[in-house]
Design a protein around this nucleic acid. Sequence first.
RNA 1: GGGUCCGUGGUCUAGUUGGUUAUGACGCGGCCCUUACAAGGCCGAGAUCGGUGGUUCGACUCCGCCCGGACCCA
Length: 872
Amino acid sequence: MSDVPDSYDPEEAEQRWREEWLDSEVYSYDDDPERPDYIIDTPPPYPTGNLHIGNALGWCYMDYAARYHRLKGDDVLFPQGWDCHGLPTEVKVEENRDIHRTDVSREQFREWCVEHTESQIGAMKETMLTLGFSQDWNHEFRTMNDDYWEETQRSFVEMAESDYVYQDEHPVNWCPRCETAIADAEVENEDREGTLYYITFEGVGNDDIEIATTRPELLPACVSMAVDPDDERYEDRIGDTFEVPLFGQEVELIADEEVDGEFGTGAVMICTFGDKQDADWWAEYDLELRAVVTEDGHLDELAGEFEGLPIEEAKTEIADALERQGYLEDAEPTEQSVGCCWRCDTPIEILSKEQWFVKVDQEEILDTAQKIEWFPDHMYTRLEEWTEGMEWDWVISRQRVFATPIPAWECADCGHVETATGAEVPVDPTTEDPAVGSCPECGGENWAGETDVMDTWMDSSISPLYVAGWPEEAFEPVQLREQGHDIIRTWAFYTILRTAAVTGEIPWEDALINGMVFGDDGNKMSKSRGNFVQPEEVVEEHSADAFRQAMALGGQPGTDIQFQWKEVTSASRFQTKLWNIVKFSAGHLEGSTPETADAAYRDVDAWILEECAGVAESVADDMDEYRFDSALRAVRDFVWHDLADDYLELIKGRLYEGRPGERRAAENALYTALSASLRMLSPFAPFITEEAWSHLPTEGSVHGASWPDPPAVDGEAAARGATIADIAATVRGWKSDEGKPLNAELDRVEVYLEEAVPLDTYDLADTVNAPVYIEEGTPNVELVPVGVDIDHSELGPVFREKAGAVVDRLESADPVELQAELDTAGHAEFEIDGDVVTVEADMFELEAEQRSEGGEEVVVLEAGDATVLVFE
RNA sequence: GGGUCCGUGGUCUAGUUGGUUAUGACGCGGCCCUUACAAGGCCGAGAUCGGUGGUUCGACUCCGCCCGGACCCA
């Protein structure tokens, strides 16, 4: 009867659909002016060659949203980009080819980097396809391609024209290993064990002074010293001068409130530059610049005999020399926070260099960020804090190769700097001259192209502009950015800054922030801990659909989630269940089922359709709020318990033996509920739902279908259906308790309802396998009140401070007497503190228990409002 | 040190504006091959909701403090 295989083979089906979808247009963006756009600003990942489980979580979220919005009828653009430029690739290429980047031409080096990047992208794309992500591959982009970096340069040019971009000499964070400037966001503070040295500076015409420092190697860069103005130890000493040990320069003591009197001796040396504080003081007090650290992290000629030593060596050599010459008073271990390069962990230096900067306009950034809807909303706070804490402008120039060139030239004759115009990008200033021709300042013709390149974040922070088609199309905010909370200070921050600067708009309407993925044991995933899981392993063990479901149910978006194998197990079981439902249903459905005219729905049909409509609505609400966990849970619950446990069992009689009209009504309702379920599940489990869809009388792909909208039904019939389902479930549970087969035949079943309702017993009788009689009132069996069930929400507000006493009286009263009072008076009365209080009937219910004392053998069951008598 | 989030059965997790017996999953125990389903079904046990004060008739939910954890910043 059915061509549905007995079991579902995910490995085969997932492979098949993956290929099918690639050849189809189901995921393509139509740019249809009639439908609302839903554009996702997919954050382009760095092509590491490995899409790890943390990436996968974010892509799952985007894919759930993309698939949901397609069902909702939106014109979805889910592009995929690649953030290609950057140091790790340069290092990898140097390693693989055993060269230094300066050994070959910039062109050659770039070419190798591109080649390497392409192979890395291929591997990650494969994983994305395995996991069933529905990007529109016609909209794939690479930040290293001309068409992309043209836009990067264009945005740079526009920002230069509006004075967001400027060139200046200013202290910057410098990584001596990468030999480039880096931005504040690329510096990570690490707690390290260091040594605190106590060093004596001899006074020049005044007493000596002792300072404490962790960086004796910076003594040659010492230009001043400072104490807290309120520090009594140094009263009257401001303005004293001292000679820097070993290096001989004379420095003056100043007072500044920023000095921490608790640290060391309370006196600190100011070097150019030990840290950001030094840079501030240097500027504030107009101190001399003694640059002693070279770009590659060695001491220069100002260090005299120590010239050429790497920083770490210089530290110990100079400390030794201080000790030998009697300047070192003490040395003790200390905890210190060291700023390190986030790419290579090398401690950073602060050097003053000519660099390109982007102005950080805190107010504009926050104004913009506030207009974005953050999910969860507290993620905005992260951005706010970071933004408010920004001290320096964003340094965007990098002394590297594989990146977007800064489109500028310097006149070799007069030093005038010429920035490209929008018309001449993309341009590589190292190989091309500016369009302006001769220097507008001096008329010279000798241009030196800028060899500095841009920070990679300059590329990735225009992704919303790029995917939205800027500048051909005026920019309108896209609908969604999804990303991890660990990169709010970079990706989100820079994108907001740049979009506001270039367009005056917010980049996205919604920012959905995902948490981190931890291992099964609750710890960060790491290979050494043995809790590392690669998405492919999960697919191999179970299926991509199961993996995707586990990601959705791991926790609500925004929280960190633990990867749980048991969640995958549970998802697999659900899929088995779903498959069996489909297999059973498909056998009863035919091509004309969906269009059954004027289906004569019985009560249970009305009930399942109403339930289904309710679920469709609440799941849509969840999806709109990106509550994927809640959405999937609701659908799974509906499918398993309402549809399979209750509804399917209730209509089996009609499906197998019903007359055509009533059978077709059941078939139609079954089809409606099942196809709605598949559509609601399809964002989470795209493969099995597509496979199931193909076995039902449906058209096309489930992913091209629309969000379910079941027909409106008679509400009273639906309520009756709910009672029937409740009764059927109760009888089924009882049979199971009794160890009876579910189809065990019963003598008869009597259903007692308080008010007579024309319950449709047709399906119920078949399901419980007994004739069913509906009665009004209470059954003629001995029911003994045994307890009281208080409705606190009714009773509490009425009695307020007396509520506790009333509850006590109700609970301590004899239930039998209470029942009698209720029957005669319609309420209960107590005397409390001399007052008579009346407890209305709606404030409590008496719990009754059936006491079988003689008479007919009968079992009494409670099913919601109904009392069910079962005669065996 | 500042900030954000969090602490619910053995494990993970839900809990909407405070209101009956606190959700589900995995695991565990028992029963059941019932015309979709044993790679399954049904049932059961298992939680003083981190601790402690407070607000309230009533607190998992609101507030204070403490303990513990994660992340961000300094």
